[in-house]
Amino acid sequence: MIELENITKKFPGADSFSVDRISFRVNEGNICVFLGPSGCGKTTILRMINRLEEPSSGNIFVNGKNVLEVDPSGLRQSMGYVIQQIGLLPHRTIEQNVGLVPELLGWEADKTRKRVRELLEVMGLKPDEVVRKYPHQLSGGQMQRVGVARAMAADPPIMLMDEPFGAVDPIVRIRLQDEFLSLQQKFQKTICFVTHDINEAIKMGDYLIILNQGRLIQMGSPIDVLTSPADEFVLSLIGEDRGVKILDLTRCETLMEPMRETPDDLMGSGCFVQSIQPVKLALEVMMKKDSDHVAVCREEKVIGLLSWKNIKKHINRVSGEDE
């Protein structure tokens, strides 16, 4: 658990606070996304958690311990750190890069080697192909994966990620996000994730913290933020397509009308979705099949019917428009 108490940060020579009286808590096993435009203080907050920056005032607790009273090197070794520029050491092989923190912690060579191979595999890289390579021989996506593998090397319970997928093209980014989310299902790390991309924030975050000019503007789950943005700033950050974004986060079962029997022609023509799939997918199916309804299934069984009318009603309700 990470807890910030009234944190402020003013860089020497700056006129205003980079981070202004911010308090929040990140629960264990959650991905907490810091979202905001450049210069809003999100990176500074992240860097204060592992003491790459020192707060001007306030306290930060990690698992109940005040970080200012902990040795900074030890603190950082106990947290994974991923940055947009990746920062792989160009003079070291991939194996040595991933094994960096274990090396600092004084692990035995054999244990480190095993761990490195295991992690590269987890990150979707072929260990035999990459361990002896140098960073400049990899593609951007591969380097990004190595960066994440390196951060996870000593199995830290906490990960700090500063736009970790920012330097790759959109297609690779989406794949990395998906893979990372499914890893998170398994490993349940406590993650602080910095991004300026609202779509990434909504996709990755269990919890969003929205910042502007050093101030905390709003915090809450993605659906909270989308349905009730705190002010004009948050509204503009979310963008015009708020309703559609909400559909991406709403499960079909939430909007469906329960029913036992569904017209066979819907099922037969493939016009159905799973109950936990997002409503956006249901829309996609409706468009493809040119239908106003889709059947909602739980596994093989039909449990309800989702209609275009309901979806429209929902969008209008949550985005506060008149019907």
Binding site: R76, I83, G87, L88, L89
Partner: peptide, 22 residues
């Protein structure tokens, strides 16, 4: 490259380790 040094620091390397290893 500053980002390499920053990554090293973020991994928990001390100043002298950064000098010798990076």
């Amino acid at each position: 490259d500053a980002s390499v040094v920053d990554a090293g620091r973020g991994m928990g390397m001390t100043t002298s380790q950064i000098l010798l290893k990076i």
